[in-house]
Simulated assay, not measured.
Amino acid sequence: MANKKLVYFVSLSSNVPYVLKEAVKNAEQGNEITIFFDLDGARVLDKRYLKIMERTHHIDLAYLMKRAMDLGIVFFGCQMNVLIADGLELVDGAQLAGVATFLETAYQADAVLSY
């Protein structure tokens, strides 16, 4: 079976732990994975949010993100989220992108999964 190009579109931060675990599993099978974080989902790309999640929910998102990036998973945050009132301290390895980047990536993908 040929490797697939999968795009995950995450708009809810509460879905991120599940998406990261699923994306890691798919990347370990040789699939090419890109994750776009938009709306509430983009909050997880903020270093301050990761610390809050670990403290309040006992979820080590920083570890999951590092594992994902080590497997070559690409993280994009919506560039409009830089308009968040207190700014965004982007996690290392994540990039900001706009709708054109999302559409280009999505058109080349075998599947786009929305969470």
Rank of each mutant, 00 (worst) to 15 (best):
A2Q: 13
A2T: 12
A2K: 14
A2W: 04
N3S: 12
K4L: 12
K4V: 04
K5I: 05
V7P: 01
V10K: 02
S11C: 05
S11I: 07
L12T: 09
L12V: 09
S13E: 10
S13D: 13
S14R: 10
N15S: 15
N15C: 07
V16P: 03
P17Y: 00
P17C: 07
P17Q: 03
Y18A: 14
V19A: 02
V19M: 00
L20K: 01
K21Y: 06
K21D: 12
E22V: 09
E22F: 09
E22R: 15
V24T: 05
V24K: 08
K25Y: 08
K25C: 05
A27F: 04
A27R: 05
A27V: 05
E28F: 04
E28M: 15
E28K: 15
E28V: 09
E28S: 13
Q29D: 09
Q29K: 15
N31R: 10
E32I: 11
I33A: 02
I35K: 00
I35Y: 02
I35L: 00
F36T: 07
F37C: 09
F37I: 15
F37P: 08
D38L: 12
D38T: 15
L39V: 11
D40K: 11
G41S: 08
G41P: 06
A42S: 15
R43M: 13
D46S: 08
D46Y: 02
Y49T: 13
Y49H: 08
Y49S: 04
L50Y: 00
K51W: 05
K51R: 15
K51I: 14
K51T: 13
I52H: 03
M53F: 06
M53Y: 12
M53D: 07
E54V: 06
R55G: 05
R55W: 06
R55V: 07
T56P: 01
T56G: 03
H57A: 15
H57P: 02
H57N: 14
H58L: 01
D60R: 02
D60G: 01
D60N: 07
L61C: 00
L61A: 02
A62E: 14
L64I: 07
M65R: 00
M65Q: 07
K66S: 08
K66C: 03
K66T: 06
R67P: 01
A68P: 01
M69K: 07
M69W: 02
L71E: 00
L71H: 01
L71W: 00
G72R: 07
I73H: 01
F75E: 03
F75S: 01
F76L: 12
G77W: 03
C78I: 09
Q79S: 15
Q79R: 14
Q79E: 14
N81S: 14
N81Q: 12
V82E: 10
V82S: 08
L83F: 08
I84H: 13
A85M: 09
A85L: 10
A85W: 04
G87M: 11
G87H: 04
L88F: 11
E89I: 13
V91C: 13
V91M: 12
V91G: 07
D92Y: 11
G93I: 02
G93N: 03
A94Q: 03
L96G: 10
L96Y: 14
L96E: 10
A97D: 05
A97S: 11
G98A: 03
G98F: 06
G98E: 05
A100H: 06
F102A: 08
F102V: 11
L103H: 06
A106D: 02
Y107K: 13
Q108C: 09
A109L: 06
